[in-house]
């Protein structure tokens, strides 16, 4: 069953032109879908639309068979409670420690008991290899460590759907693997994931399906084998040949 369905979704930033142009996409429960494409193709915007940071200017988003009304505050809040996003720039709260970043939403927003939220937060941080950094502030952590805290923070929300927005692009090459290892583990656990990434080897390895976007539209969708080895569209072939050459 489709867990996420986008029907002809378009979006534009208040300051600029169209960034998504009639995108239609279906993601099934437990599926890992990666979105690839050149810079400015609308990949990250697609994730921002899904979490309501940029409401669509046209088209519809459906979650588990229900149309999401972005103007309806309650509906958006309910949808956001099921989603979690990890941003490219980590976006950790700078005034909070790693553990507070992970526990603030469960404790302050979802009103979970502090002790159990802290215990889960500590366990999640240990799981991503940061058991010794619970009290560290974001600026005391490396980029890779911050990204893993962001991942732990997203997981602490117990999301049904995890959105990952170029989570390795702001990292030094040696830090990329530690983040990818953590995501690889999640993919094996059956959580629905929508991954925007430029790490093609990683995309090929973890994805059930790959979506290639260009100029705000979906160019081609298919299993990794098709997209990387036998693309059906000229635009996809051109993009893949360029990135695989490097």
């Amino acid at each position: 069953m489709a867990q996420i369905e986008l029907r002809g979704v378009s979006a534009r930033y208040p300051s600029g032109g169209q960034v998504l142009d009639g995108v239609s996409l279906v993601v099934d429960k437990g599926e890992v879908v990666s979105i690839i494409g050149p810079s400015g193709s609308g990949k990250s915007t697609l994730l921002r639309v899904l979490v309501g940071l940029l409401p669509p200017s046209a088209g519809e988003v459906w979650l588990d068979g229900s149309r999401l009304d972005y103007a309806d505050r309650k509906a958006l809040t309910a949808a956001r409670a099921r989603l979690a996003i990890v941003f490219q720039q980590f976006n950790l709260f700078q005034n909070m420690t790693a553990l507070d970043n992970v526990t603030v939403t469960p404790v302050k927003i979802r009103r979970e008991p502090k002790a159990s939220a802290r215990a889960r937060g500590e366990a999640l941080l240990r799981r991503v290899g940061l058991g010794d950094k619970l009290g560290a502030y974001p600026d005391e952590l490396s980029g890779g460590q911050q990204q893993r805290v962001a991942l732990a923070r997203a997981l602490a929300l117990g999301p049904e759907i995890l959105l990952l927005d170029e989570v390795t692009s702001a990292l030094d090459p040696e830090m990329v693997n530690e983040v990818l290892d953590a995501i690889r583990d999640l993919a094996n656990e059956g959580i629905t994931m929508l991954i925007v990434s430029h790490e093609m080897a990683f995309v090929r390895e973890v994805s059930d399906r790959v979506v290639m976007m260009a100029d705000g539209a979906v160019v081609e969708t298919g299993p990794p084998g098709q997209i990387f080895d036998a693309p059906r569209t000229e635009r996809c072939r051109e993009f893949v040949s360029k990135i695989l050459r490097h």
Binding site: L53, R80, V104
Partner: peptide, 21 residues
Amino acid sequence: RNQWESAAVMNFGRLRTVALV
């Protein structure tokens, strides 16, 4: 702005975003 955005997607609401973040 990314601090506001993070809080928004985690359903902080405006008042809690201001108070906590």
